[in-house]
Each structure stands twice: as C-alpha cells, then as structure tokens.
Simulated assay, not measured.
Amino acid sequence: MIFLLPMIVALLVVAGWPLFRTIYFSFTDASLTDLYGAEWVGFKNYLAWTTLKSGRVIFSGVLADPGWWNAVWNTVRFAAVSVTLEAVLGMAVALVLNADFKGRGIVRAAILIPWAIPTIVSAKMWSWMLNDQFGILNDLFLKLGLISGKIAWTANADTAMTAVLIVDVWKTTPFMALLILAGLQMVPKDIYEAADIDGVHPVKQFFRITLPLVRPAIMVAVIFRLLDAMRIFDLIYVLTPNSSQTKTMSVIARENLIDFDKFAYGSTMSTLLFVLIAAMTILYIWLGRVRLDGGDR
C-alpha cells in the first residue's frame, strides 16, 4: 500500500477530482463565465418537463435532446463496427506475426507504425488523402474505374462514417494485433505438435486450440479498444467536425462545454458518457467471465 499510495494520490488529483467536479456541475446552472457562482438545479439538466395550460407536456434536458440521442447512436455504431473489424483484422495480423519467417522483427516494427503516429497527425494526413479535389484515393479509384466521379468522403452524409471507420481501423488494428500476439506467444508449442501428430486440420486447431487459449487476451484487447472507441473525439473532430452523421458523445459534449457556453449542459453529457462507459465495461467483463488479469472466475 505504501508503494501504491503515490499512484493512488496522483489518480485522485488528475482523474478523480475533475470527474467529481464534472458530476457536480451537471446538477448546477454553471457557465464558463460563472463557474463558482453556479446554483444547484437538481436533475433539471438531465430531464425536466413543463405542463402547459392545454395539458401538453414539454420535456427538456439532455435525455430529451434529439441531438444527444443521435450522438449516442453514432458512438455506439462506431464502437461496435470499429472494434469488431479491429478484433478480426488484429487476430489475422497477430497470427501472421506469430509465424516464423525471415525478417519477422522488421515486419513487427513496421506494423506498429500506424498506431505510433499521433491521432491528430493521422487524421490530418487522411483528411488530405480523402479530399475530393486533391485526395489520392479519389485519383486512384478513378484510374481503377471503381468510381465515376470524385467523392467528398468526409463531407458526404453517406460516406462520412465509413471514412472515419477506415482511418480508425487503419490506425488501431496494430494495437489489437500487439495484445493478441502477446497471448499467442503464451500458448505452448507442444499442443500444436500433438495436434499435428493426431492429424488435426489447421482450421480446427485454430477454433479448438488457439481461440480458447487466447480468449483472455482478446477480451482484454476488446475492453481497452471499446473504452477508447466510446470516448472517441480527436479523429471525429479533425475529419468531420460539423457532421451530424458522425458526431459522437464526446464531440457534442465539447460543443456545449466550450462553443455554446452551456457548461452545465455539457457536464451533464460528459457525466452520462462516463456512466454509459462504466456500465458497458462492467457488463462486458461480467458476460465474459474474465478478469483483467486473464484468469477465469
């Protein structure tokens, strides 16, 4: 406990106190110009209603805001699709990197380059590649005959989410592959030798041996990526800052906190995002029956 104390204190100062203040502000009428003079308003920012003389009930608050629910849907859809694709592709890459071949160390280092590049740099680089006038992707697809005209990938409502998913999968698949590779290298080689002697097909070996044994590593990798995907901000903000088709919970919370000077309203959205992520993580761990250290319950 003595050795852990500095880390615990640092977490409380860096993470715990801002989280507590955010939750507190969500129950007030705080604004950027008057943070310390805010008054307590209870659950008004979350959900409130007014009954008119005609008997009609008008709801207000974040939980009655269509923009918020659109952001929730965008976030959940982005997280589900991106994490699924990254898990599948990460497993494929990890299986390749786990094989013995000449130059494996160089390939491993090269695979990690997209993940090592800062997200802002990756987003800006891809924004030029996806540009409808100067982008290399449009030029390449036109030459290959895959498209008939230039496409504004990040500005088009039909392709904006797809463009963001492509960039995120390209950048984060190496992270998934790295974690799964660590699990693959823990699998004893003699199990595969015994399976080969018994004449077990490689596909059956994968589903009967590899997947069950690396399941804890996959679960941990998916949990980490799910947490990142649910709070995605920088990639969306750079590629599609004003698109309702890709606006996530973090982006809309930042808009209300800073751009619209609705600090209490934005704090409410941030608090709901925290609650949603915490609930999903707990549910995922419970359903997976796997501790973060990889042991079975």
Rank of each mutant, 00 (worst) to 15 (best):
V96H: 04
L146M: 09
L184C: 00
D100V: 13
L85H: 02
L178C: 05
T154H: 00
D29P: 09
R77H: 10
V238P: 08
L211F: 13
G16N: 07
Q205D: 06
V81P: 13
R56M: 11
A182K: 03
F43I: 14
F233M: 01
A279D: 13
G199I: 00
V57G: 11
I218H: 04
W128M: 11
L144G: 02
I166S: 01
L19K: 08
P241G: 06
Y284M: 14
I23P: 05
A15C: 00
T162E: 09
M280L: 15
A278G: 09
V41R: 14
R254P: 02
A30P: 05
T50P: 08
R104Y: 06
S250Y: 03
D190E: 10
T159A: 09
G55N: 07
L142C: 01
L272E: 07
Q205G: 06
I277A: 14
A64N: 11
I282L: 14
A182D: 10
G199M: 04
R291E: 14
G288Q: 08
W68Y: 11
L211A: 00
L137V: 13
F141S: 11
T154W: 07
N70E: 03
P202A: 09
I8H: 06
V76C: 02
L4F: 10
D65A: 09
M219Q: 14
L4M: 12
V167Y: 09
I282W: 07
V81I: 15
P212L: 06
N131F: 03
I2N: 00
K247V: 08
D261L: 04
F43H: 13
P174W: 01
M219C: 11
I117A: 06
M125W: 08
D198S: 07
P66M: 08
A279W: 03
V14C: 02
G90S: 14
L273M: 13
H201L: 04
L226A: 12
N242W: 01
W40L: 15
I223L: 15
Q133V: 00
S127R: 12
M219S: 11
D100Q: 15
E193C: 09
W170G: 03
V62F: 01
A279C: 13
G199N: 04
F260G: 01
G294K: 08
D168G: 01
